[in-house]
Design a protein around this nucleic acid. Structure first.
Lengths: 204, 204
DNA sequence: ACCGATATTCTAGCGGTGCTATAATTTATA
DNA sequence: TATAAATTATAGCACCGCTAGAATATCGGT
């Protein structure tokens, strides 16, 4: 009997997770094609052929769905950055990571949008910060660790720069024409002027 | 008769503009206090004691109201940056402008949010780009003109960096603790490594 | 094989949203 | 002051996020 109970419980869990994945998948698909305003609870319940309350059993609210997708997004960009950083260990990791970051943002604009549209309930440094977010940031931090005393600041600023480029490109403030030159220049800025050398030049 | 007609038309125009200003003012006030989701057409029509269709006569849609406010925002940040740049003509204009930009974003978070939440219907460079947006960007461009061959790229990247810092701060991704050091470091990055010197260091 | 209990799912509806066709009213003109 | 024109309000549509309570399906024990 215990065996049967376990197997049933496991199946239920699998079903639950499968349905959860279906919801998230449908939401992402609709968002990339028609924008987040088209991602309504009714529409999602239609897509998965369940009634609305089922969605609320899974996520609690529409915002809960977006939050879950945002977390997935940070997981995925973290993996992409890690891959880029490790692959370019001999070349210029800063360049490789910058390209990977902007490629991620450009190829999944709706996903990228939702990752930053919800303001965190709690500051980033806080213990409640999702590990996926920490992991992604740690890939940026790794680029500067050891090379400078202010690795954390540099990582933050590199993130800010990439995020700014991504966001201003997504909302059409930046013309696509200068894309490559933008990446090249931001990489230059963050590659060489490490603390010591930069100060030395300035004669401080 | 003609005189009377003109005076009446003028009064009507004044009334129209005054009401328009009322709507925008109410929307900004509500947004800063309670967020943009609380800015509903019904709520605004209550605030100005007119029925809903009056708002549609003015702006066409809710999004039209937000767009008008965004334009105002770009006008205002343009003025703030111009002031900062001119005031610091002898000091470091880059530093002064960076501080002014971030101060603007931090002190009117809802206004700043709406300025970038609507994606432009048309690329930035386009002739249909609102002059207020051009004016604001021209203040950033002025910081690098003459100093480098790629002034436009540098201005774009400086804008991206400041926007990234503003946005990641607003959504609590950046702890406020390192605020000053962030500004100092980004200013360093964009102040000294002008093209020639930077390349020289690298021995190209 | 059936019953009672538990878990799951659906129906139906609430209060709210952006938006608008049409009616009512005010305003200006002759 | 009567008529034409501009302005404003009423009332309603289709949709939204969300949920209480009814209906259904699933489970465990006999």
């Amino acid at each position: 009997m215990k065996q049967a109970v376990n197997r049933i419980a496991e199946r239920k869990l699998r079903d639950r997770q499968a349905r959860r994945a279906q919801i998230i998948s449908a939401a992402r698909r609709i968002a990339e094609r028609e924008g987040w305003s088209s991602v309504t609870v009714r529409r999602l319940s239609d897509e998965i052929s369940y009634s609305q309350p089922v969605l609320y059993a899974h996520f609690g609210s529409r915002e809960g769905i977006l939050a879950a997708i945002a977390i997935d997004g940070f997981q995925e960009i973290g993996w992409a950055l890690e891959k880029a950083r490790k692959r370019a260990a001999r070349g210029n990791p800063v360049e490789s990571v910058a390209a990977a970051y902007l490629k991620f943002a450009a190829s999944s604009p709706a996903l990228y949008e939702v990752m930053f549209s919800l303001s965190l309930s709690v500051p980033f440094g806080h213990s409640a910060t999702p590990p996926e977010l920490r992991f992604a940031f740690s890939q940026l931090l790794a680029l500067f660790e050891g090379a400078s005393a202010k690795a954390e600041i540099l990582a933050e600023l590199f993130w800010a720069s990439l995020h700014g480029i991504a966001e201003l490109s997504r909302t059409k403030r930046f013309p696509p024409s200068r894309r490559k030159e933008r990446v090249r220049t931001i990489v230059e800025l963050f590659t060489f002027p490490r603390e010591e050398s930069a100060r030395a030049i300035r004669g401080r």
